[in-house]
Design a protein around this nucleic acid. Structure first.
Lengths: 222, 222
DNA sequence: GTAGGTTAAAAAATCGATTATTTTGTCTAA
DNA sequence: TTAGACAAAATAATCGATTTTTTAACCTAC
């Protein structure tokens, strides 16, 4: 049971890849930090080969940078990159949302309502930890899922991870968080009404608000 | 000398990565084929570890698929995916071209002219092999280079590689090739005139024509 | 005192071999 | 004849150790 709720094994097989990815997005490593491979090996209790292969994949994905014979490093953060990511997110997710609204079927509508509901529940429970993040990512993924473009979804997911490196820099902000949560439900409403134009406008605003949160946190950390 | 002409070491350090990437894009492996790692090891004269790390990176990049405990496989080709890639290329490269025209400086103009000229020369020389492909990729990269978005450029490059897996399926077609080559020069002209609208329209058409070539070749191979 | 060079320590990358898994072939029983 | 189970071969993944490269410390010469 509940098979359809499962997340589809984040594109790579090895468990260490998923764990490292989550930790990198979640900010458990400092930006610019050099990863000590032997330390990671012990910390995560994995062998050298699987670890290195995971690091290589993460580097290709953009969550690490690989320097010639100098190992792996967590990418630096910059205002310019955050702007870039937010702007591209706006374009790509807007595009995907429009297409999703055009093509999404009844199953999608149900999935959307479910995803939004779970997110709200997790919110009320004040369990604003990793579980909320998981559900939040899932909601946004569900929203654009039936856009019909595998590559567009791939890029959007990549940008989400990058964006979250900024957004998750600081502690939670209850007031703005409430506002963003409301938008999630409004997005569902507009999607169900098949109002692509309004939905896209709201999505633009949603990303912009998130951007402001991320920017504020980035500037505090700098 | 000529330092500014150099390509910036295709984002990964290891030479085997670049070679494999070129061979995958160039179609030296059949779509759907399972890669025999030991065979590759001998064929490319590399050790197992560097090879596996390269394969992992290529899988994260999308030029390979990794199956649980079943090694690596060349992704299948499909009409649907080709359509997807072409459509996204149109959107993303159009966007990038507009921004490049807005921001490109005099150095860009010079680079563009140089890239187009070299491409034409390679064309006339009838050396329509790997060298022409290199220059063609370089031209398109130069065209959008000053768009101001690192991530947009990254995605465009990725899509280019994917697109070329289809385009390079068959032998050269001189007539349509000539038409596409002319468009390269027209693109330069419009870019220098800073006519973003016309340039984007031409780019749309350019990608569409390339798409038709790629589609024809794909259908012949199927 | 500092620049340049040498050596020692640390770390990354690679190699050869082992282990685990999948695939293939063969045999038996229904 | 075919389906299922078992054994053997092939292949992928992982491990431990070695090699190479980088980084740091120290020393000498100017």
């Amino acid at each position: 049971m509940n098979k359809h709720i499962q997340f589809p094994a984040a594109s790579a097989s090895s468990p260490i890849y998923d764990v490292l990815r989550r930790d990198l997005v979640g900010g458990r490593f400092k930006a610019g930090e050099k990863l000590a491979i032997n330390a990671l090996k012990e910390q995560y209790q994995v062998g050298l080969s699987p670890l290195r292969e995971a690091l290589n994949k993460l580097a290709a994905y953009g969550l690490l940078v690989q320097e010639n014979q100098r190992g792996f490093r967590v990418p630096k953060l910059s205002r310019e990159e955050l702007d870039d990511i937010a702007r591209l997110r706006t374009e790509l997710e807007g595009m995907a949302l429009e297409r999703a609204i055009a093509h999404g079927d009844a199953v999608w509508e149900a999935d959307l309502l479910a995803a939004a509901h779970r997110l709200k529940r997790a919110d009320i429970t004040l369990d604003k930890g990793e579980e909320w993040e998981r559900l939040h990512t899932h909601f946004h993924r569900t929203l654009v899922a039936p856009c019909g473009s595998v590559w567009l979804l791939r890029f959007i997911e990549q940008l989400h991870d990058q964006f979250d490196r900024y957004r998750r820099l600081g502690p939670k902000m209850p007031t703005i968080r409430q506002e963003l949560d409301d938008q999630h439900h409004q997005l569902v409403e507009l999607a169900l009404q098949r109002d692509a134009t309004a939905a896209r406008a709201l999505m633009d605003d949603h990303i912009h608000k998130s951007y402001e949160v991320a920017l504020a946190r980035y500037q505090q950390h700098a």
